[in-house]
Design a protein around this nucleic acid. Structure first.
Length: 291
DNA sequence: CACTTGACCTGTCCGC
DNA sequence: TGCGGACAGGTCAAGT
């Protein structure tokens, strides 16, 4: 669920909360969530100071003073939540969530020298964090294969078309979900951007018109930016680094809106399966191409 | 190689 | 109320 806008929101939050903090203890209840050896953790995480947090695709990368980085993938249910005086206390809106940590979904606890803590929670245990040398992050096989960042200035229509060139026979939804084509789109923003572009999710890439490609290139960027502005989407359990939920779904056109009226034409939104995933669309605004 | 399906997990919701 | 099963959806491995 955390897709590009949610991960970006977490990273921005971390940058305002944990810079220069020094790690003093690390606890992990589930080796799969944090598979490093204890000796690596002792040597390169304990005692390290946080330099900065950044994002690549859906990855959170926390650079440390030891020239190691903590790389985190939240997958579906991961949360990276900071508990400090800023966001925890009687009367604070996030107290009900933050105050209860750790809970049964807590996998890793990182404690800083000022006794504040960073919690990695992950109900379904699909997510992970890994400690590795900063220079090796970009060399990871799956990082090297990632497509371009859709919000980068140089992500032009020409680049978009080039990226789709080898996907002519797959449907457009599967193509934009493929992280080697584009980095950062997941199920929510795939559905939303296809709706705004008026493209049926099962349309084959090779059958898209130039006009549709141009429109989709724009709507992908629009939707991702809009969601970042709204703090992301909280479909199930996404929260940002301060424990706050995102607001995008109050504004969504199709995602999780099956049977509800389309915001443009009042036709009930339909839910189908495309690329193995629940897919929401408007049958009038996104007509199926006949072929 | 391109594309699809299944596995990884746990919690929730729906129908009987 | 309890219980089975479908579903949620990011990514990689395995299968077609």
């Amino acid at each position: 669920m955390p897709e590009l806008p949610e991960v970006e929101t977490v990273v921005r939050g971390l940058n305002g909360l944990i810079i220069d903090k020094k790690v003093v203890t690390v606890k992990c209840d589930n080796p799969k969530s944090f598979p490093n050896d204890q000796s690596q953790i002792d040597n390169f995480l304990i005692g390290a100071k946080v330099r900065r947090a950044k994002r690549r695709a859906k990855l959170i990368i926390i650079d440390l003073s030891t020239d190691y980085s903590l790389v985190v993938h939240l997958k579906m249910t991961g949360q990276l939540v900071y508990k400090g005086e800023q966001n925890w206390g009687a009367g604070h809106p996030n107290d009900s969530l933050i105050g209860q940590l750790p809970d049964k979904s807590t996998r890793v606890i990182i404690e800083f020298a000022d006794q504040t803590k960073l919690y990695f929670n992950d109900q379904r245990k699909f997510g992970w964090m890994k400690l590795l040398p900063t220079v090796e992050v970009a060399e990871l096989a799956f990082v090297k294969k990632l497509g371009p960042e859709p919000l980068a200035d140089d992500f032009s229509l020409v680049v978009f078309k080039k990226r789709l060139a080898r996907k002519q026979r797959s449907n457009i939804k599967a193509a934009i979900l493929d992280q080697t084509v584009l980095a950062g789109i997941g199920n929510i923003y795939a559905d939303e951007s296809l709706f705004l572009a008026g493209v049926h999710p099962r349309t084959l890439v090779g059958e898209l018109t130039d006009q549709q490609l141009k429109k989709l290139h724009q709507t992908i960027r629009q939707v991702l930016q809009k969601s970042i502005d709204l703090g992301g989407s909280s479909s199930r359990n996404y929260v940002d680094a301060t424990g706050a939920k995102g607001n995008y779904l109050n504004w969504a056109f199709v995602y999780k809106r099956d049977q509800q009226p389309c915001r443009q034409c009042q036709t009930p939104i339909e839910k189908i399966r495309v690329a193995g995933r629940g897919t929401h669309f408007c049958p009038i605004c996104q007509p199926e191409s006949r072929s």
